[in-house]
Design a protein around this nucleic acid. Structure first.
Lengths: 146, 146
DNA sequence: TTCATATCGTACCAAATTGGTACTGATTGT
DNA sequence: ACAATCAGTACCAATTTGGTACGATATGAA
């Protein structure tokens, strides 16, 4: 499977939204806006906050905003935060040892391909990703008062 | 998860082996050589054969050989054959509809990223993979660079 | 013709991962 | 005080993945 998890999808939707509106929003607002499971989105946003990708404010009128400038939020970071750092194959992760060991003809190529894909997603920022979107008109209530 | 399935790993090991030795081999031989589950590898090789990536010969002295020239076996094909054609996200696959629909700010970027990764793995052949020098030069070019 | 070696086709099951929910606690603006 | 909202955790159902079993079919060789 070469696929993003649904949680990673959620993360990208939320981040794109926050980037586009440039306004803080609560988990519920975002969930309602895009028809996502509120509870699940809440879990995702919490994780993103723990990783510093979002900044949160608790309590009434609280919510989430980007934790860094969009140019400094990398797709690779987002995926790592949500799904945990993943290797393209177990055979390229250093902690596990595969039975074929050194004589495996596929190990080195897989490692190389993994690096290329990682390099690619680490080069993409939220700014790159969300730039062109047509979400201008959306405004949601009132931002953090601070 | 941005990861190859174990079956895809098995496929790449077997294909790499057959490419390197330029000799037919039975499932058992390959499984023994690299310490893989013989039964599982057999299933994988069968699937690859059905997709035309391998050619098989039954019976005593039978076994598998590459079904095409290594330059015509693409990494994307292998993954598709084993894991089924996958989209990077459900939201980029045409048959499923996501609840956020047209106003989702992440859909178009995800689609773009998906295309780039697909394009990358579709550009790599078994011949490239076996020759690491070629692989070093290959890169995914960065989108949104306008 | 019999036998061992192989692939072919299925069906099945256990383990791991993912998707999704529930609930309690902490914080904050009104 | 109270409602809104994030934080933390625990839990479970659904799906996917990893792995096995087994009978059928084909083939080369003794």
């Amino acid at each position: 499977m070469l696929k993003l998890s649904k949680k990673a999808d959620y993360a990208l939707v939320a981040l794109s939204h926050l980037q586009a509106t440039e306004l803080p929003a609560s988990a519920k607002e975002i969930a309602d806006r895009y028809n996502l499971s509120a509870q699940m989105l809440a879990n995702v946003l919490k994780t993103l906050t723990q990783s510093g990708l979002l900044a949160s404010k608790r309590g009434a009128m609280g919510g989430y905003a980007l934790g860094k400038r969009p140019e400094h939020i990398f797709l690779g970071e987002v995926i790592d935060a949500i799904d945990g750092r993943q290797s393209l194959s177990d055979c390229t992760s250093l902690d596990k040892r595969c039975s074929a060991e050194t004589n495996c003809p596929a190990k080195s190529p897989i490692l190389m391909i993994h690096k290329k894909i990682k390099q690619f997603i680490d080069s993409l920022t939220l700014a790159d990703i969300a730039n062109r979107e047509i979400l201008k008109g959306v405004s949601i209530d009132i931002p953090f008062s601070s």
